[in-house]
């Protein structure tokens, strides 16, 4: 388990987008090998303004717009990394990263392995992902499992501004390629941020302590899970909330230690449930904590449908109520062993 508290005086209130911007700025300033490129990331500062002002500060040679070609962006980043640079590239939206999928899975993920470690690719692919912002089709996908299923990639997703800063800095410094998934609907959430790098890439974080049940979430739904934990507290249930932060590798240690204490677990994510990340978490828990479980591991996930249109997305996204209902179904009244 990793403890958050790191106190310095220079806390600033930042949105997640601003914290990411700050992380890029500091990385560009600290390491001249770092480059930022993608679609509209230069003068415009990105469609979500995450790269705002960077081209002005660091010049077009280090922060630049590319032709509209996602495979081209990742493919050329690979060549640049082979030649000693550290590209941080932006995919404009989740679903628009798919043209780069072959470069990611066939090359980015495999290069270290296929060359016996001779070639390493310290590249970060930043992808705004997920829904909850009223986006029309192709702008709201939760594509994390495509990447998490691919050995060789790290998959990282922050849930708040402070983590956005620290995890992005660590991702840029990582010798492994990182798919960095930014939950769009949290871009504008403000928080006091101490811009510190940290040293916990790959570790989950216990966001809230509790004794009765463990909620496991990541990215956008972490805040929903925390709200649900708060509401459950009113109803007399003590809920622990774990923010995974790193989907690959998976921090089974933190998750399993918690579930062994609480005996109950619910995984929450907005991606579809079938073959979703929650299936992996549930499997790991049942493999490693079976004798501690008071109830089956349950999941609260998006529906098994293409991402719905804005007016219907509330049905798809895990809500506080659905999480509370699911917690209620964790066999509280039945005696062990709970089997049916």
């Amino acid at each position: 388990m990793t403890i958050v508290a790191e106190t310095t005086s220079s806390a600033t209130e930042l949105t997640m987008a601003a914290a990411l911007n700050r992380a890029l700025r500091d990385a560009l300033a600290d390491d001249e090998r770092v480059l930022v490129f993608g679609e509209d990331v230069g003068r415009l500062g990105g469609v979500f303004r995450v790269t705002d002002g960077l081209a002005d500060q660091f010049g077009e040679a280090r922060v630049f717009d590319t032709p509209l070609a996602e495979s081209g962006i990742v493919g050329t980043a690979i060549g640049m990394a082979m030649n000693g640079l550290r590209p941080v590239v932006e995919m404009q939206f989740d679903a628009f990263a798919y043209p780069a999928f072959e470069q990611v899975t066939s090359h980015l993920a495999k290069m270290r392995n296929r060359t016996h470690g001779h070639v390493q690719l310290p590249i970060v692919i930043r992808i705004p992902y997920g829904g909850g912002i009223g986006g029309v089709e192709h702008h709201c996908d939760s594509s994390e499992v495509y990447y998490a299923h691919t050995p060789g990639l790290r998959v990282v997703t922050p849930a708040d501004a402070a983590d956005a800063y620290s995890l992005l800095r660590q991702s840029i410094e990582s010798p492994d390629p990182v798919v960095f998934l930014e939950p769009k609907r949290r871009y504008w959430n403000k928080q006091q941020v101490v811009p510190s790098r940290g040293d916990d890439l790959g570790r989950a974080l216990v966001r809230r302590g509790g004794t009765d049940v463990t909620l496991i979430a990541y990215g956008g739904p972490v805040a929903t899970a925390l709200d649900a934990a708060e509401a459950a507290e009113q109803e007399g249930r003590s809920v622990e909330v774990i923010d995974l932060r790193s989907l690959a590798p998976f921090d089974d240690e933190t998750v399993c230690a918690s579930v062994r204490r609480t005996g109950r677990a619910v995984v929450v994510h907005e991606a579809s449930g079938f073959c979703g990340y929650g299936a992996e978490v549930a499997a790991q828990i049942s493999e490693q904590c079976f004798h501690y479980l008071e109830a089956p591991v349950l999941r609260v996930t998006g529906l098994d449908i293409p991402y719905p249109p804005p007016q219907l997305e509330n049905h798809h996204l895990p809500s506080v109520d659905r999480i509370l209902d699911t917690i209620d179904r964790l066999q509280w009244d039945e005696s062990r062993p709970a089997e049916d």
């Binding site: 081209g72 493919g75 050329t76 060549g79 030649n83």
Partner: peptide, 22 residues
């Protein structure tokens, strides 16, 4: 490395060349 996924290495070549120029 010898490239099997057709044409994918063309982009690596462009990236490596551009990095050299930089």
């Amino acid at each position: 490395p010898q490239c099997t996924p057709l044409a994918t290495s063309a982009l690596h070549a462009v990236g490596l060349a551009q990095a050299a120029r930089m």
